[in-house]
Structure formats: structure tokens, C-alpha cells
């Protein structure tokens, strides 16, 4: 519940379905959907990480995938107080029983925030949001005016202090003009520690001087024009725009097996 996109569901965590018409007699697996690729790219960010703080949905799927494919010693931390959880299934909530049963330690919420998050003990945080601005600030509070909101969103949850407590923040968000807006209706969480924004179209990173997000990587088959069209401001492109390495067979197989559990 650390600000995961409230408009998507945990059930779609592995990706919004496999492209139609690709199953059948062909023995090779269906190509990765945009959602699956986003999850796989997010998992790659955790190759070297010691610990990661995660909300529900795609971040949780990505972190579990990272433990399977890249980094079996990765410590998963959920804000429910479960430290070192090793769930077999992708949890629906951040407090599913399987998290408590498989954790190295379970702590109270005050302890989680004061002793573990606020102190910088957790290396990477995966966050989602309903809106993100050019400096990676996030809104998960309201769309429209605060007193008379058009859409009331769930609110801050753990995100504000997770984003200033963890050493590195990775945002996972769907790439659309609804989400990527020039100006937030409400700043729930600051983007000061954000290192990567991983979308279904590519990866954005802050410019080291201005902190403005720059698109540095696009997924295979995606054009720079497509990315610009899905962004609500004039997006800066990196001088050397990289193309994301396509998913390996091992990554894709492991993800599909994980989601099917």
C-alpha cells in the first residue's frame, strides 16, 4: 500500500495479459506483453540490491521475480512489518498471511518506520502513483481540488517517508498522459531520491544537474514519438537512447510460472 497505483489491480500484476492470437501449435512462448516487460525490467534493477521495500501489484511481482532469476538473497520488506518475507505466491495485500509465515522478523508499524525505513537501512524502494511530474514527484492523494476532489485517491500510505528514508527510489508506473503530468494536483511524495522510472514504454532517469526526468531507454518496438505522445510535458531524450534488452527465455518463463502459481 505504499502508493501503488490505485487504478490497477494486483490480479493483473504479471502484465495485462498475453497478446492474443499467439498461442496454439507454435512451441515457442508468446512474446512478452508490455506489462510483462515492465515487470522484467523492474526485476533487473534488483540484481545487486541487498534489500527492497515493496508495495502490492507489479512491484511485488518484480521483486519476487528478482529473487527467482537474479538475486536469491534479496531481502523483501513490506510495510506491514514483515522483513525478509519469502512468499511463494504473489500476495494480494501487503499483509497476506504468507508474508508473516515466511518472514525473518515481524515488527510493529511504528518500529518499521522509525527503526528500519527512516534510518536508511533499506536500500531500494519500489513505489507507484496515480500521477508523476517532470521531477518524479508523486501524487496518490486527489485528482482535482483537495477540498472538492474529482477523484479521491487512497492517500499517502507509507510513501512520503519511504521516499526520503530508503536510499534509492524506483517508480513503476503506466506510461500515459493521465499519469505523466506537467503539474501535480497534490504533492504526496517528493522525487529527490528517485533514480529510475520504469514504464511500459521505457525507462526515465533524472538529469544529474536539473533533476528533470530524461528518457534514457525505450522498450523494443517502441518509438521515441510514442513515448512523447504518452507524456504530458516536452520530454527530454538522452543523447544515446538505448533499447531495452528483450526478455530472456528464463525471465519470461519464470515470470509466467510465478503469476500462474
Amino acid at each position: 500500500m505504499s502508493g501503488s497505483d490505485p487504478t490497477t489491480t494486483g490480479a493483473a500484476a504479471g502484465g495485462a495479459g498475453i497478446p492474443a492470437g499467439t498461442t496454439g501449435t507454435d512451441a515457442s512462448p508468446a512474446p512478452a506483453s508490455a506489462g510483462e516487460l515492465q515487470t522484467i525490467v523492474a526485476a533487473r534493477r534488483l540484481r545487486e540490491a541487498q534489500s527492497v521495500f515493496i508495495g502490492v501489484g507489479r512491484p511485488s511481482t518484480a521483486a519476487l521475480l528478482a529473487r527467482i532469476v537474479h538475486n536469491p538473497r534479496l531481502v523483501l520488506v513490506y510495510e506491514s512489518g514483515t522483513i525478509g518475507a519469502k512468499p511463494y505466491h504473489v500476495p494480494l495485500s501487503i499483509g497476506d498471511g504468507e508474508l508473516a509465515e515466511t518472514a525473518d522478523a515481524i515488527v510493529s508499524v511504528p518500529e518499521m518506520f522509525n527503526y528500519w525505513i527512516g534510518t536508511g537501512r533499506i536500500q531500494v524502494a519500489f513505489l507507484g502513483a496515480a500521477q508523476i511530474d517532470p521531477h518524479a514527484n508523486l501524487n496518490s492523494t486527489v485528482i482535482g481540488d483537495y477540498e472538492h476532489p474529482r477523484t479521491r485517491l487512497p492517500g499517502a500510505g507509507g510513501a512520503p517517508e519511504i521516499a526520503t528514508g530508503c536510499r534509492e527510489v524506483v517508480v513503476i508506473a503506466p506510461h500515459s498522459v493521465r499519469t505523466f503530468v506537467k503539474r501535480l494536483d497534490f504533492v504526496t511524495t517528493t522525487g529527490d531520491r528517485t533514480t529510475h522510472v520504469i514504464t511500459d514504454l521505457g525507462v526515465l532517469e533524472p538529469d544529474p544537474d536539473t533533476r528533470e526526468l530524461v528518457i534514457t531507454q525505450i522498450h523494443p518496438g517502441v518509438t521515441p514519438e510514442q513515448v512523447q505522445e504518452a507524456t504530458g510535458w516536452e520530454l527530454k531524450m538522452a543523447d544515446e537512447l538505448r533499447v531495452t534488452d528483450p526478455p530472456t527465455e528464463a525471465e519470461l518463463e519464470a515470470l509466467r510460472e510465478l503469476v500462474a502459481r
Binding site: M1, P6, L92, I94
Partner: peptide
């Protein structure tokens, strides 16, 4: 008085939203 008003992993709390909106 709260800090996160969602249906965990699913989406919105629709009755709360109706009251607020």
C-alpha cells in the same frame, strides 16, 4: 482520520469515495 484508504491490492474504497466526492 487515516493514512491509506484503499482496498489493499484491489483498488478504491467506493463507499468512502462516494462520501468524499
Amino acid at each position: 482520520t487515516f493514512s491509506y484508504a484503499g482496498n489493499p491490492g484491489v483498488g478504491s474504497l467506493h463507499r468512502l469515495r462516494d462520501a468524499v466526492e
